[in-house]
Nucleic acid binder design. Structure first.
Lengths: 344, 344
DNA sequence: TATCATTATGCACACGTGTGCAAGCAGGCT
DNA sequence: AGCCTGCTTGCACACGTGTGCATAATGATA
């Protein structure tokens, strides 16, 4: 059994309320007793019970984080950003992975409510409208990250996917490519649509045609599906000479798929990723991609949520806020000019 | 403000204790009232306060997990295994990353104690003896995973690193290699020592000499350090023809380092990893590695901890337990027989 | 009809912490 | 000496839930 303030009170011969005040450095208590009590508390290895405290203060100092999968390096980095910021402010993280399983999401939301989490950050696109409603009705502050239904929420951090996708596509156009395809992830909702939009806008601006079959979606974003995507494009009557991929995971698969089919990258095929996960620098050839500032995104999300929590006391109706961050094109070796032989 | 059992009591005209009992399906309460109360509870969207409950019952239904870094895919997968198992049993996870920062570890431990976590799983090697002592003194059940100082703890899950490293080394020997080097991570303590031991044992068994400079350590395990490691080995007067790497992250860097130096893998150099992280299947060439059952390791850790929690009530002194899991060699394309030209 | 067993419910306290208010105490002032 | 001020401390209740015990209500039995 852990020591409590009552134990300390007994030991020092004061009431438990005096101990409570002394530990919080309340000026009501004399310096002498405060010091004595804190000394004893240290000796007895006292640690306050978070449960009791949050019961009384109605603040748990815990933030809930919902991600779709922990072992996706993209989310890992966002979580990293969140954690750094939260830990600085004295908040801890309650992390749960939905694994794209609706029943699991249900449980997670319930748990977070039961834990009376001070706020929630959602980095998962797999919440349905009913779950959204439930969360909003409960009334705790929510910040969403790259979420498809962000208009339902008041506070969100966005990466400018349209802009990013335009940057990537423009890079390929400037290299001289005209037959450029897009490989999306049909499960990622709004995100893939934004990236598709950016691709389309840039193609249109340069009066480039998008041939039949050049826009293709696979149900997820692991490398194996990327291989499938590569097969699809290579089987077209007029295969593209460059493929804009939804993210790095897919791009890695496409890269492998092409190489298995004997297509040389980047000489015969240019491939771009999106996100700049750690491993994109270590593929062969290293991947040209869009460096999404993942840690900043996570940190911004946490910062926004913390601001929300602090302002909620004085200023009950904080105005909606939407922060957009832009990424940077990162040119590596998976893209190149067309060789003459391939231009035909 | 969330609804409480008192609200429900007022609404149904009974005392709060009756509500409390009805919600837990206590047979003391008549079936009729139980049903009525549960109905009202549902209507009012009642969710019990975890804080109040754990204050009263002394069980938080939360497990603490300490990892050294979240964005390391190896830990991500272990956490995944833990989460699956824990969620099934109704437990939630409190995850914190130490980032190899001792002061951060200090805070994490403190937080877990304050949260009165029911138990802790440690997947990080960066706890010093003082912190170990602190955790043990506090007295909550601890399960360590691949931890260097496991003998200080009573319950641990181990991957048999010595055996794994022997399997990898034997594979290279069987391919005909004789000049085999080992690249370790000096920060990983016991783990790198075990793998080194396995390598040495296998080399000795086949009467193979370990040349000067063939055992090399770098301070960490990211791909960039792997590149450094490759440089080291290639600069030796008699460079090795095969390199056993501490883990996949390093192996990926070594792979790139060799390729930058114009060395063909696997024709001129065989490289092996360890862990089998997702990306090791998508390097070029795909990495031969030791498939460590990461999810099983995580799940086993959670299972052991849960058993501990349940048995603690009846059986106060549960006997120490150490579970060892073995991994399997996974042969891909980063290893090959020596060509005649290179054998000289 | 009085007594008892059985069932259903409420009372009151507990968990550990925080806080408004009253009370005690010392010292300085008129 | 009496009063007021300022500083310290304790009392008592609150947060939301769980539980031992007493009590009330009902039905059965002698």
């Amino acid at each position: 059994m852990a020591t409590t303030i009552k134990d300390i009170a007994r030991r020092t011969g004061v009431s438990h309320s005096t101990v409570s005040r002394a530990l919080r450095n309340d000026p009501l208590i004399s310096v002498a007793t405060t010091r004595r009590i804190q000394q004893v508390a240290r000796e007895m290895a006292y640690l306050p019970s978070a449960a009791a405290r949050s019961l009384k203060t109605n603040r748990s100092l815990v933030l809930g984080v919902i991600v779709s999968s922990i072992d996706d390096p993209f989310f890992s980095e966002i979580v990293f950003g969140i954690e750094s910021c939260a830990q600085e402010a004295g908040y801890s993280l309650f992390i749960a992975a939905s694994q794209h399983d609706p029943s699991r999401v249900e449980k997670i939301i319930q748990t977070m409510m039961e834990q009376r989490t001070d706020g929630v950050i959602i980095c998962s696109s797999s919440l349905n409208s009913n779950q959204n409603r439930q969360l909003l009705e409960y009334g705790f502050p929510i910040v969403v990250v790259n979420h498809q239904a962000a208009e339902n929420f008041h506070y969100s951090i966005y990466h400018d996917d349209v802009d990013g996708s335009r940057q990537v596509t423009r890079h390929l156009v400037e290299l001289g490519h005209t037959r450029i395809a897009y490989l999306g992830n049909s499960l990622s909702g709004r995100t893939t649509l934004d990236r598709l939009t950016g691709y389309q806008a840039e193609m249109m601006e340069h009066h480039l045609q998008i041939l039949e079959g050049y826009i293709h979606h696979v149900p997820g974003s692991n490398p194996a599906l990327g291989v499938d995507g590569a097969m699809h494009f290579l089987a077209l009557p007029k295969p593209p000479t460059a493929i804009v991929c939804f993210n790095d995971m897919l791009a890695i698969g496409v890269l492998q798929g092409c190489q298995q089919a004997g297509i040389q990258v980047p000489q015969q095929m240019s491939i771009t990723g999106f996100d700049n996960i750690t491993f994109s620098a270590y593929t062969n050839p290293p991947l040209t991609t869009l460096d999404q500032p993942k840690r900043s995104i996570g940190a911004e999300a946490a910062r926004l949520l913390l601001t929300l929590l602090n302002s909620n006391q004085e200023n009950p109706s904080f105005q909606p806020q939407q922060i957009t961050l832009k990424g940077n094109l990162l040119v590596r070796q998976s893209t190149a000019q067309l060789t003459n032989r391939e231009k035909k």
